[in-house]
Nucleic acid binder design. Structure first.
Lengths: 240, 240
DNA sequence: GTCTATACCTTGATAGAC
DNA sequence: GTCTATCAAGGTATAGAC
């Protein structure tokens, strides 16, 4: 889907303007970056003037903060939903890996903004600190799962922090290269990364290596779109 | 090292202005991003006016392209130097992982610019296509090593492309979180990632799993600074 | 809720003195 | 090789009519 047809959809005034503005903003922030995107660019994409944008949004930076906050909250919510009732550390790790990968594949634009535009928030501002806190809360889920796996003797790893950082980077990188119609389906990507992750932590149960088949399969419905992530996001090459 | 003292060093007129400008540019591009950095910001950091910058650089975008080109060329050169004469795929993979990790840890600013500012080059421009070609040439080294490992029966992996993308993201992520005085020395990071990588590809030699100890140790001197990456880059927290 | 018009600032880049 | 001065274009954000 080209930017032209996206623009046509985004200019449809029968859809709530707040949602269209957020959709356009996340699209442009992800493509060009926050600093390179003007309020006028967003306005043009939704068929409004830049002044009209300020009726819906208090400032460009607040718009960025809203997007990042929503993205982080969804990530935390879907992760905790996925982990609920899960007891075996190897199952929990598989869920962490496949849900983080799925989030970055299904919602490439929001995750790119989440992962790359923290520097665009005023350092020390309330919004900045809030996003940092959300990010830390998410990373705690990983810390807990890895620690439990080591405690129970299911994982045999070196430095837990390095292990976590390496595995998380593998998953988050997905938003940089994944394309919906590309060579690998997203479930396949999740499975492959779960497999690699389980091997990286040397997951073993009763002396036998744990493989992806022994853990819960990827559940892409765990990570639903946000209100302003339209369904055509998933099928279209919006990330350019 | 604070930006203040960095500024003092960068304003030292006994050092070649071209180098100081590149140092300042990569520092600011990495911290704030290319679009958020003004030519006046660079000029202020090196103690010149914005007009003087244009005596040394034809345009801001050309400055970015120069930095990215130099970074990519160094990565390719040090990688090929490291791989020269190496025959065993497991050794080659260890070198790919530790040199990519070392590059991203030793030269965090240049690698952040390399990895994150491709979108800031005019799409289709000569510089853009050149950088893309360099990136592809680098990735080919990975493709070759993984393919050879599979051929020789040393690696047992699923999708070679997904394996490569996952491992490369693990390594490149280093520039986002590594800090010189932090909890883990860079050699340690390289070793840990090599270990995880070898397990991820199920490297085996004579039926026995290959560990990092069986492969060449990380060689940080393989990735020397560029002329405009001063020695204090390595010790100082320039990445903010 | 959207418009036109505008205030005020910063941008990348250039001209020409020294 | 660096400066001052300047340009046109664009930035965020606001005022006030409709």
């Amino acid at each position: 889907m080209s930017e032209r047809s996206v623009g046509t959809l985004l200019a449809d005034r029968s859809v709530d303007a707040d949602l269209r503005i957020r959709t356009a903003a996340v699209l442009l922030f992800a493509r060009r970056g926050y600093a390179a995107t003007g309020v006028r660019d967003i306005a043009r994409l939704v068929g409004l003037t830049n002044a009209a944008i300020y009726h819906h949004v208090s400032s460009k930076e607040e718009l960025l903060a809203d997007i990042m906050r929503a993205g982080q909250n969804r990530l935390i919510a879907s992760t905790r939903r996925g982990l609920r009732g899960v007891v075996r550390p190897e199952d929990a790790l598989a869920i962490l890996i496949s849900s983080l990968t799925a989030t970055h594949g299904l919602h490439r634009m929001v995750t790119r903004v989440m992962d790359g535009e923290l520097r665009s928030l005023t350092p020390g501002s309330a919004a900045y600190q809030e996003i940092i806190a959300l990010r830390d809360a998410y990373e705690d889920e990983w810390r807990r799962v890895l620690a439990r796996g080591v405690e129970e003797g299911v994982f045999r790893i070196g430095d837990p922090r390095l292990t976590r950082l390496g595995l998380m980077a593998m998953c988050t990188g997905t938003s940089e290269w994944y394309r919906p119609g590309g060579p690998a389906a997203l479930e396949r990507v999740c499975l492959e990364f779960v497999e690699m992750g389980l091997r990286a932590v040397r997951a073993r149960r009763d002396g036998v290596p744990v493989t992806a088949g022994d853990t819960p399969p990827p559940d892409l419905s765990l990570v639903p779109p946000l209100p302003w992530e339209p369904p055509w996001d998933e099928a279209a090459d919006l990330a350019g």
